[in-house]
Design a protein around this nucleic acid. Sequence first.
DNA 1: ATATTTGCAAACCGTTTGCAGCAAG
DNA 2: CTTGCTGCAAACGGTTTGCAAATAT
Lengths: 139, 139
Amino acid sequence: MSSEIEQMCIAKGMRMTDQRRVIAKVLSNANDHPDVEEVYRRATDIDSRISIATVYRTVRLFEEAGILERHDFRVESGENRARFELVSEMHHDHLIDIEGGEVIEFHDKEIEELQKKIAEKHGYKLVDHRMELYGVKIR
Amino acid sequence: MSSEIEQMCIAKGMRMTDQRRVIAKVLSNANDHPDVEEVYRRATDIDSRISIATVYRTVRLFEEAGILERHDFRVESGENRARFELVSEMHHDHLIDIEGGEVIEFHDKEIEELQKKIAEKHGYKLVDHRMELYGVKIR
DNA sequence: ATATTTGCAAACCGTTTGCAGCAAG
DNA sequence: CTTGCTGCAAACGGTTTGCAAATAT
């Protein structure tokens, strides 16, 4: 059976190679926000004939096709790797545990509404936004 | 007369070189959000004996001293340069014109409050956040 | 058959760093 | 005098790319 992303690719008329199928599967199954290295690890685990260059090309392709969303979370270690997740029907933002690294997804209608209003107040139509909350667990 | 940033540096006991003084002045006078190349341009305009390496070292120093804030605005051209601004007494977020590139600062108490609540609802203490609105001018 | 994709390694770009000389305290 | 700063050029790390071979359609 083909993965969720593979279906989307087919729907968009993309040429499906073994590599793309594997990467599509890895990303479809991910419920975290892996970076390219991690996708590469998981993909080569399934099929070793995949190069990191192809992973880079493929996540970019998927992103441009509106299948994946790219994030640049600010992270303690200062490493600057982009992380990816499947675009979901429901838009959401992220709360990042700066100690543990976990990422919690949330959606707040009220904030979204306020953001739109702020843009309008300044004479702008809001076309995108980025909101990341950074926190530490209360124990 | 010494610039706002220079005063802060002195207050923190930093060794003041000509290069640092010039860079401090450039950043104190900036009311935009220049990247390193732009700071370098403005600085060498005043005194050509400044290298880009020193600009990099100095903005990092100022950032770590809590004098500057670093931003990584998402930008159409895909270029990934960090941009800097003097930390202001009043915290604010940014509305970025994705066409013109202008950056508008704003502050919304209500959103800040909601962000804190969201973090708490998930068992986190909010320690930082990043909120950028991307818009197009309504003509 | 042809157009697209791949792996490889080299290039890229923003940023950092080792080092020897220079300047601040 | 000592410690820290600078310029230079080389290294870095994540990402992209030119190319010839391999593959999808």
